[in-house]
Amino acid sequence: MNKTTEQDVSNPVEDAFVADAALAPAFFAWLCRMGDNALILGHRVSEWCGHAPALEEDIAMANTALDLIGHTQMWLGLAGEVEDKGRDADALAYLRDALQFRNLLLCELPNGDMGLTLMRQFLFDARHHLMLEWLTRSASPRVAEIAAKAVKEASYHLERSSDLVVRLGDGTEESHRRMQAAVEQLWPYVDEMFVTDAVDDAMAAAEIAPRPCDLRKEWDETVRSVFAEATLDVPGAVGFAQTGGNLGRHTEHLGYILAEMQFLQRAYPGASW
């Protein structure tokens, strides 16, 4: 898998946006958002490895995490090229501090029980899939190329997480209670997925990516229909949404994720692994 990625990097399709200096700051920030979401959510999902409630589920969760790590390599790899300061995907993943991370707060929240993990995954997948589908038609051929690979995996993620949300919502009293509690706990982090700022406007103007706020309607429809089948209530509007990941203002959790993830690279600078 990595072999293919390497080949693609050494022989990339033509893409004028990649060397567009005026666009670079916004393009870089946007690519970090894509890559950091995948990296941090992948990290969280990988924490389940060896601890899931059934062997089949353990294997399925690891597949999701592996897909997300693969996406990270592609997005952050391209971010490094756009930035053009000699940083590759690993340098971006392992040598930036929390302030430079651009992932959604939703992705860094602790796993909780399987209900919370799966609900977080579903809320994310529903947006991720819409985003990637749009990106397969991006004006940037490199972005479109990555999206074309990632969307197949994301569509399976959504199929799986929505299916499990329905099953657990409808299952027993306890599973229903846990799923509804997960929705309530995560709902304040939903609005952040559709926050649209100057970076997004620049990407939309170049027709590289959609404005996240434009994905909201379709996302709402997906979530509503899945929740209806799952007999879960959609919470009302949130008084105060938790936001800030886009700008590097995170929860306390991200610092610990990075302390763990970056430990070897930080403790032994310059070593080759």
Binding site: H43, S46, C49, D58, L66, I69, Q73, D90, L264, W273
Partner: peptide
């Protein structure tokens, strides 16, 4: 799975992380 799973979140590169995760996943299989 557990002794190796202990290092998945601390693997030093993205590639090492993917390889280790795939390996520990194989053990579940």
């Amino acid at each position: 799975q557990l002794p190796e799973g202990n290092w998945i979140t601390r693997a030093p590169t993205l590639e090492r992380k993917a390889i280790l995760l795939a390996k520990v996943q194989d053990e579940a299989g």
